[in-house]
Design a binder for these strands. Structure first.
Length: 452
RNA sequence: GUGGGCAUAGCUCAGUUGGUUAGAGCGCAUGGUUGUGGUCCAUGAGGUCGCCGGUUCAAAUCCGGCUGUCCACCCCA
């Protein structure tokens, strides 16, 4: 008698998973996201989950702390040094992909990527170690049209709206404005200044001013002007005059203002004030050089950003002797979805995709049920044939608990008509397998056909 | 990586100033005869009270360590 030892079943923290009725909604979301991305001509790529470690760390920064390396449990001699690791985002794999297939791609290269990414962070609400990102990027040779800076956020907002998410804001800034402004003020530590200013919504103007003095070594008066810049927001192009009123001279600054104005002008005509010029937005990644984006759920202002992206001067510099700039935007799918699940905002779908359960009547040849199922399946329905000739009550209960909308009783004797029962209304009718159609009150079938 | 809270049944949680056999709701299983689910009723299964050690006649309860988890910071979708 061996003591049975059970391991407490638990998903690893930070690695979300859903019950079938939630997962089915997530799948519908992904289908919808893909559909709209493709409607704008973006193509799909699906590079591996792992890349060479040198590739992943090529973007610099200290993200390597958060990269999961892969190695075999039983490493052989000299083999314990990990050579590959799980990708940290979808942009670096894209860079490698574009560089590698440069000769086979048509530019501007517009691609979408719906994949998981992995980060070795401490999990928290909205922070996962494994999560889906839905990226769209445009990469071109030597120069990417500014029009894309305006189109991408419009695409993303359309996607979210089609998922029923209108309460989303898209904050947009331009790194050239920040850099030009700071340089115009004679600030030397621009990178640190950007990092601090990005905390505006978290620690407020006073906090930023103090931190600029303490951490970035900026004098109080100059710090104050940085805060003034960061306080500017507008849903139209009026931000530009307000920046110019601060009277800082810089060519780069002017360039940034023109670009941001262009983007805002375009977005104002295709969205309803969801896009906002927000000069406090900076974004952490230091490879952004122009437009930067950050999206938030309006109803959960303390929840971390759900959209992120920007323009980079050169995506593939570390792989190719060509300059390939790009602009991209990413939906934090898991971040959004998990929050809405937690808040009860996701209407669970059915527990299984079955439209019809065929009952197996006790005392009737099981071939009858099997053939009935096959017949209905050929008509395009998702059909389960109950796995044993158990009591009919038990089979009904199964259909009920799985949320299967229709039950079919195959004919008990040759020549008789089958009967169909609508589980929601309780209505039961005799009708041939070819003539039967769902009455419409069944939720599963409708949900599935609508999304298909 | 730094700092703080929490840990009792599958889930959500009770459990008095340490005291004998640790409870509830939900969920699950079976039954309430024959070929019809949901509601109701009855019965039942299920816990090393996270793990290890200490204090005590006695620990779910007090103390220490470990692990897990959640929150804040860092950073970020």
């Amino acid at each position: 008698m061996s003591a049975k030892k059970t391991i407490k079943p638990r998903a690893i923290s930070g690695f979300p998973e859903w019950l079938p009725e939630i997962r089915i909604v997530e799948q519908q979301w992904m289908n919808e996201i893909r559909r709209i991305f493709e409607s704008y001509g973006f193509c799909s790529i699906d590079p591996p989950s792992v890349e060479d470690i040198d590739v992943l760390t090529s973007k610099g920064g200290d993200t390597d702390k958060e990269i999961y390396a892969l190695r075999r449990l039983q490493a052989e001699d000299g083999g314990d040094e990990a050579r590959v690791a799980l990708h940290y985002d979808l942009t670096v794999p894209l860079a490698r992909y574009v560089a590698q297939h440069f000769n086979d791609l048509a530019f501007p290269f517009k691609r979408y990527q719906i994949q998981r990414a992995w980060r070795g962070e401490r999990p928290q609400e909205g922070r996962f170690r494994e999560f889906y990102q839905c990226d769209i990027d445009v990469v071109d040779v030597d120069n990417v049209a500014l029009d894309f800076d305006a189109e991408l956020p419009a695409v993303i907002l359309e996607v979210l709206a089609s998922l029923g998410l209108d309460r989303v804001s898209m904050h947009i800034n331009n790194r050239k404005i920040l850099q030009g402004f700071y340089e115009g003020l004679g600030i030397e530590n621009v990178v640190e200044t950007i990092r601090v200013v990005d905390k505006m919504d978290k620690i407020g103007p006073e906090g930023v001013a103090k931190m600029l003095v303490d951490d970035a070594g900026i004098d109080a008066a100059t710090a104050q002007r940085c805060v003034e810049l960061a306080s500017i927001r507008s849903t139209d192009t009026s931000f530009a005059e307000r920046v110019r009123a601060l009277d800082v001279k810089s060519e780069l600054l002017d360039e940034g203002l023109d670009e941001l104005t262009f983007v805002l002008e375009h977005l104002a005509s295709v969205t309803q004030e969801q896009a906002v010029a927000d000069l406090a937005i900076a974004r952490g990644f230091d490879y952004y050089t122009g437009t930067v984006y950050e999206g938030k759920l309006i109803d959960y202002p303390d929840y971390p950003s759900i959209l992120s992206g920007g323009r980079y001067d050169d995506l593939v510099g570390s792989f190719l002797r060509r300059r390939l700039p790009g602009v991209g935007l990413s939906i934090g799918l898991t971040r959004i979805f998990a929050k809405l699940v937690k808040e009860g905002q996701i209407q669970p779908g059915p527990k299984c995709p079955t439209d019809v359960l065929v009952v197996q009547l006790p005392g009737v040849d099981r071939a009858v049920a099997r053939d009935t199922g096959r017949h209905l399946r050929r008509r395009g329905f998702n059909v389960e044939v109950y796995h044993e000739a158990k009591k009919v009550g038990a089979q009904m209960k199964y259909a009920d608990r799985k949320g299967i909308p229709y039950v079919c009783f195959p004919p008990g004797e040759p020549g008789a008509l089958p009967e169909f029962k609508d589980m929601q209304s309780g209505e039961q009718t005799s009708v041939s397998l070819d003539a039967w159609s769902p009455s419409g009150s069944g939720g599963t079938f409708k949900a599935r056909t609508v999304s298909a």
